[in-house]
Nucleic acid binder design. Structure first.
Lengths: 206, 206
DNA sequence: GTAATAAACAAACATTTGTTTAAAATGTTT
DNA sequence: AAACATTTTAAACAAATGTTTGTTTATTAC
C-alpha cells in the first residue's frame, strides 16, 4: 500500500481546513502538519499559498461546472429542437444536483458554499472565473423559460436562489439555532427537493 | 467643533474595514491609522481585538433586533386578539425592513450581511446570540401562518429566505457578474419588495 | 491649586505568518 | 555504478500581527 501523493495529501488537508476555518485563518503549518508533510513542500509544489488556494478550488469547481454546463447545454438543445420553453425546475436542478452527485466529503460541500461568500479576494476571483459561463447560460435559459419576467427582476430572483442554495449548503449539518421540536437534520437529496420547490415558485412569480 | 470621541472613531473605522475585508483580514494598525488614533487605544478601550469585534457588531445588531422584535410582537398581539393567522409577508417584512430604515452607511449593510456568513467564530457567536429571540418568535409566527407546512420543511424554507436576504444584501452594489443588458443597480426598497415577493411565494408553497 | 484619575502616546515584546535557502535523501537515466 | 534530476527536510528569514509597558498629557474632583 503506497503512501498517497504529497500533492494530494496537501490538497486534502487544505480543503478540510479551508472549509472549516476559511482561507486566511488557516496557516501553512496547520495544513502541512495535518497532511504529514514538510512545511516547505507547499511552496515547492504550488509556488505559494495563493497557488494552493487556487488548486484546492479548481480541483472541485472545474468538474462541477463542467457537469453543470453539460446539463444546461442538453436543456438548451432540447428547447432549440422542440421550440418549447425550457423548464425552470430543470434549469435550477442542473445547477444544484451536480454538487450532490460529485460529493466525496462534507468538506467539498463547504468549499463550494464558502466560495460564494468568502471575503478573500482569491477565492472570489477563482469562483467567479469558473462559474462565469455556467451563469450566463443559466440566465439565458431562464429568460426563455420566463419571458414575462423583466430581465432586471429575474436577475435578482436568481441572486435570491443562489443565496438560498449557498446558505443552506453551508448550514447543513451545522445549524446552531433550531426551534423546539424541529428536526434540522436533512439528506442532501431532500434539501435539493425543498430548494427546487422553494425557488421554482419564487422564480415563476407572475 | 469638538473632535469625535476616540471610541466612536475606532468603531467607525473598524466597521468600514470589517465590512470591506472581513475581520481577520483587518489589522489593528489599519484600523487605528484610519481612525487617526494610537494603536494601543484599541486595547485600552475594548480590551482586545475580540472585544472590538463584539462592540462593532453589537452597536448595529442590538437596535436592529430590538426593532425586529417590536414589530414581530405587534404582529403576534394582532393575531392573538383577532384570532386570525398572521400574514407571511408581514412577518418577513418585519425581518428585512428594519435593516433599511436604520441605515447610516453602506458599511452597515455589509456588516449585517457578513454577520450571517462570516467564517469567524466571534462574528458568528455574537450574531447568533443577538438574533436568537427574534428567530424563535419569527418561527412560531410562521408556524401559525402556515399550519399546513410541516415544521421541518418550514425550517429549511426559512433558511432559504434568510440565505437569499443575506446574499442579496451582500451583493448589492458589488455584483461582479452581470449578464448582457441587465441593469443590476437597485434601490434598497425595491430589493425588499422583490425579496418579499420571492420568498413569500416560496414559503407559502402548498 | 493640587492630587487623582483617565486617556493618549511611542516603543518594545513575543508570536505567528509565508517564504527562502542549502543540504540531504530519494528516484531515474545513462 | 555514476551522473543527473526530483523531492524532502531542517533551519532560518523578514515582515506583520496582537498585546504590553512605562511615560506623558489631559481631564476631573476636592
Amino acid at each position: 500500500m503506497k503512501k498517497k501523493d504529497t500533492t494530494q495529501r496537501i490538497l486534502d488537508a487544505a480543503e478540510a481546513l479551508f472549509a472549516e476555518k476559511g482561507v486566511s485563518n488557516t496557516s501553512l503549518r496547520e495544513i502541512t502538519s495535518r497532511a504529514g508533510v514538510n512545511l516547505a513542500s507547499v511552496n515547492y509544489h504550488f509556488g505559494s499559498k495563493l497557488g494552493l488556494v487556487e488548486a484546492v478550488l479548481k480541483r472541485r469547481l472545474d468538474p462541477l461546472n463542467k457537469e453543470r454546463l453539460k446539463r444546461l447545454q442538453a436543456i438548451k438543445r432540447e428547447a432549440d429542437s422542440t421550440g418549447k420553453a425550457p423548464s425552470v425546475r430543470a434549469i435550477m436542478q442542473a445547477i444544484f444536483e451536480p454538487i450532490l452527485i460529485m460529493v466525496d466529503t462534507q468538506a467539498f460541500i463547504r468549499i463550494i458554499a464558502r466560495s460564494m461568500t468568502d471575503p478573500d479576494e482569491t477565492v472570489k476571483n477563482v469562483f467567479l472565473r469558473e462559474i462565469g459561463p455556467v451563469f450566463r447560460l443559466m440566465f439565458s435559459l431562464l429568460m426563455r423559460a420566463l419571458p414575462h419576467v423583466p430581465k432586471d427582476v429575474l436577475f435578482w430572483r436568481v441572486q435570491f436562489a443562489l443565496g438560498a442554495m449557498g446558505h443552506s449548503l453551508w448550514a447543513i449539518g451545522r445549524v446552531k439555532m433550531v426551534p423546539e421540536g424541529v428536526d434540522a437534520s436533512i439528506s442532501r437529496d431532500r434539501l435539493l427537493e425543498l430548494w427546487l420547490d422553494f425557488c421554482t415558485e419564487g422564480l415563476e412569480n407572475p
